[in-house]
Design a binder for these strands. Structure first.
Lengths: 132, 132
DNA sequence: ACAAATGATACTATTGTGGTATCATTTAAA
DNA sequence: TTTAAATGATACCACAATAGTATCATTTGT
């Protein structure tokens, strides 16, 4: 199992690079050179980040991307939410039949506890905290 | 993303049922009726639990399964280990290039912290604690 | 002998992940 | 005003993982 899939990973790296460049507009071709990620894939990822309001996009010659909000307001959890849609750890279990069988479903509570912890941790990891 | 896949889920339910029956030998056909899980799939799952020493198996007429060790010594984490082999949350990230870029890879440490927590929690959920 | 059970193994179908490919649109600059 | 450099949108494809099915062999109680 992976907590973090490749697109989330790539998004994170790209954002770190873009964040370091401050207000400068960074083109995909530049990121590709730096990060060695296949260009069409990275484009798709950045377009998605743009759609979700994480990046500001500029078309045309000299165009590219910059952060749409400060680096300390973009969190790893945001990326998970974008690229790994229905992210909840306990999907199967609590919808189905175990719950009724077990008193007040002990399991759900414990899985929820884990999920809450993970969510909080991921929500505390900002791009700013990674670029230092 | 799912923390718990369907086979782990089914295994958990089957084990809870078997645990409640104490020393009685339970056949797959019985579990199928109770849990509404497709029989061939459940068979595969129970065979796997047997191979990994979680269940004791009895062939022939009147055969079936019972726990191979006490219910308080079988943990959710054991099931994850059996059905979701290479279970580590941070796979992608720390093998690759982000680490060198970031000072001492802050990220890896934080992901590791999450992983440790999840592992500990899952290791504390026993079948016994679920059947009450 | 026979039927009821598991053991072993190979196959299949669906879904998710990790991409490609293509064309449309915008824009700076020659 | 043409052109090239960029993103926007969308459809497609390949591979791996998940979620099963199917079949035959083996064991064992009656």
């Amino acid at each position: 199992m992976k907590l973090i899939t490749r697109d989330t990973d790539y998004a994170l790296r790209a954002l770190c690079f873009i964040a370091k460049e401050k207000e400068r507009i960074v083109a995909v071709s530049e990121l590709v050179k730096e990060l060695k990620i296949p260009k069409p894939f990275l484009r798709k990822i950045l377009q998605s980040l743009h759609k979700h309001g994480v990046l500001a996009a500029y078309k045309g010659v000299g165009g590219g991307f910059k952060l749409a909000r400060p680096a300390n307001k973009i969190f790893l959890f945001d990326l998970l939410a974008i690229f790994q849609q229905d992210w909840h750890l306990n999907e199967c279990l609590f919808k189905k039949m175990l719950c009724p069988n077990v008193k007040k479903c002990v399991l759900k509570k414990r899985i929820d506890k884990i999920e809450d912890f993970v969510r909080k941790e991921l929500s505390s990891i900002s791009i700013a905290s990674l670029v230092g």
